[in-house]
Amino acid sequence: MKWPVQLVAGAILFGVFLVAAIVSLGWTPHDVTDLNIAAKLSPSGDGYLLGTDHLGRDMLSMLMAGARTSIAVALVAVGIGIVLGVPLGLSAAANRGGLLDEIIMRGNDLVFAFPSLVIAILITAVFGPSALNAIIAIGIFNIPVFARVSRGAALTIWPREFIMAARVAGKGRALISAEHILPNIANLLVVQGTIQFSMGILAEAGLSYVGLGAQPPTPSWGRMLADAQTFFYAYPRLAILPGLCIVMTVLGLNLMGDGLRDLLDPRLRRAMK
């Protein structure tokens, strides 16, 4: 089997940040809460590979820990979308045209009317800003995405003959959905999951930039950009580094998504040749 170039390139790009995030769990060059005002805004070198920020914190350590925050928030948000959205979509498809289908799809439309930033604003107004609330906001936004994708894909599987065979054998709709439909749409869910993952990274960065995400001292890329705004012109490094991290991670995930689609969808792959 030949691996798509995009998948390999994307996986390498994303892998770098994933490894950095995992390593940061146990080790960072400096403690991210370690303020060294005497060494603030120092350039790279001098024990600080990428220099320090306006409070004398090590940039490299902050970026590594920021990767951890971004990836964790986006990953859990995708998890929420899959765990809640896929069963909803599958049951809507299993009861196509019925009341349940109608309720689920209308509910989805309703959630779609609330962009994740607006959900985050509402949640923050109630509970105050935190990384957990960012996860919930992005996660809620992911639910209708997965519900819609799985419903649409499931509807194309239901008329197939092997489903008919299962129904003749006496299996119920729920069991058929779990045993026969789900494995057949898993590919699509993996691709969609990758896309939502990358959108989650961007959303988390935006939320923490406006102060609705992870709170200090938890490092996050969006927060670093907000902090850098006043020093940006004199010290461009402070804003360019976190920005590049976001771009690379999102680009990596998007390339992976495209590559996975080519790899997992044989129909598309044949059409490409």
């Binding site: 990358s198 961007l202 930039y209 969006g222 850098a228 920005g243 771009v247």
Partner: peptide
């Protein structure tokens, strides 16, 4: 690349 760039960073 354009999709991967956060708009507020591009703005800066």
């Amino acid at each position: 690349l354009g999709i991967a760039v956060p708009n507020f960073w591009f703005a800066m």
